[in-house]
């Protein structure tokens, strides 16, 4: 497979990608703050540290393509272009939430933006995503189903059933393992036997590779290669993203299973800061241009916060609606 390079993106396009990464980072920091203030309840799994994965993949996505993921989904739905106000209002459990306050952090969907959730059971989204790929093929659509899963899901039985079906029926599916090294508090070394996780798919005749998931450019290159492979071969493909979450598994995670040194070392390759550095140094983008983008996002997040706290609680009658259509 010949390597393409992301240098084919214009500076404006790259700035758009940076803007999205920065938006996710600031959104998640605000979510953490609101959780701390008791305005967000329950589970809240933050995407901080993994932004290069979702935005690198985004750089290869057609607006018609579909995406599905597990419960760490805020970054994913924002990447798909859903209004952050609606996402934050879902976290605060309000009427204006994308799921009308009935889904919460783990259950957000947008058909218009081709985002199919938001699933809370580890591994369950993988057969579902293969089914979405099945529908693309059934209707002769030129679309790819992007299916995200974590390193934890790679030891879940249904995931292998899904690999088998995707390969057997030659479905247009890109599996993306976000290997952030820990399934909750259990390190990958304590949960997964054998070599690299993506190799587990190769026995089903699914080609794949492992890439640096902390770097937008390496992710984007791999994502474009994968897209072209799937389009040319009508077969699934798998990418394992070497990534890291800077925050806990969820908000109530004391993080005793890893050292501060390890986290700090990973923060030295912070994907958002690294992309900014590259834009400044290699693409010679003016610092002020980036500063403007950042201040705009910071301002936007303030509006998002305000909106999500002012939106009313859902109507009581909504308790009983949408159980059946």
């Amino acid at each position: 497979m010949d390597k393409k390079t992301s240098n084919s993106f214009s500076n404006d396009q790259l700035l758009k990608f940076y803007e999205k990464m920065f938006l996710i980072r600031k959104f998640e920091e605000k979510a953490a703050q609101l959780y701390g203030a008791g305005k967000i309840g329950g589970f809240c799994h933050l995407y901080i540290g993994q932004e290069a994965v979702v935005i690198g993949i985004l750089s290869s996505i057609n607006s018609e393509d579909t995406v599905i993921t597990a419960y760490r989904d805020h970054g994913h739905i924002l990447a798909r272009g859903v209004d952050p106000k609606l996402v934050m209002s879902e976290l605060t459990g309000r009427k204006d939430g994308i799921s009308k306050g009935k889904g919460g952090s783990m259950h957000m969907f947008s058909k218009a933006n081709r985002f199919y959730g938001g699933h809370g059971i580890v591994g369950a989204q993988v057969p579902l995503g293969v089914g979405i790929g099945f529908a693309h093929k059934y209707r002769n659509e030129k679309k790819i189903s992007r299916v995200y899963l974590g390193d934890g899901a790679m030891s879940n039985g249904q995931v292998f059933e899904a690999f088998n079906l995707a390969s057997l029926w030659q479905l247009p599916v890109l599996f993306i393992i976000e290997n952030n090294k820990y399934g909750m508090g259990t390190s990958i070394g304590r949960s997964a036997a054998g070599n690299d996780l993506f190799e587990r798919a190769t026995v089903f005749d699914i080609e794949g590779e492992k890439v640096d998931g902390m770097n937008f450019f390496t992710v984007s290159d791999a994502a474009i290669r994968a897209r072209d492979y799937i389009n040319n071969n009508s077969k699934p493909y798998i990418i394992e993203m070497d990534t890291y979450r800077f925050r806990g598994h969820s908000m109530s995670d004391p993080g005793l299973y890893r050292t501060k040194d390890e986290v700090n070392k990973m923060k030295e390759i912070d994907p958002v800061l690294m992309m900014k550095e590259t834009l400044l140094k290699e693409f010679k983008i003016e610092e002020d241009t980036i500063k403007d983008i950042e201040s705009n996002i910071k301002r936007q997040i303030k509006d998002v916060e305000k909106f999500s706290l002012e939106s009313p609680l859902p109507d009581i009658k909504d308790l009983f609606t949408e159980v059946y259509l």
Binding site: T66, I68, Y116, A124, V126, P127, L128, G129, V130, G131, I132, G133, F134, A135, H136, Y138, G157, Q158, F160, E161, A162, N164, L165, L168, W169
Partner: peptide, 26 residues
């Protein structure tokens, strides 16, 4: 065979696949 499909003995997988297909309108 496009509309009538034999599956492997893989209930967890093919049920999930069918539900995913239904979510996208089939």
């Amino acid at each position: 065979s496009k509309r009538v499909l034999d599956t492997p003995i893989s209930e967890h997988g093919f049920t999930g696949l069918a539900i995913g297909a239904a979510m996208s309108g089939l």
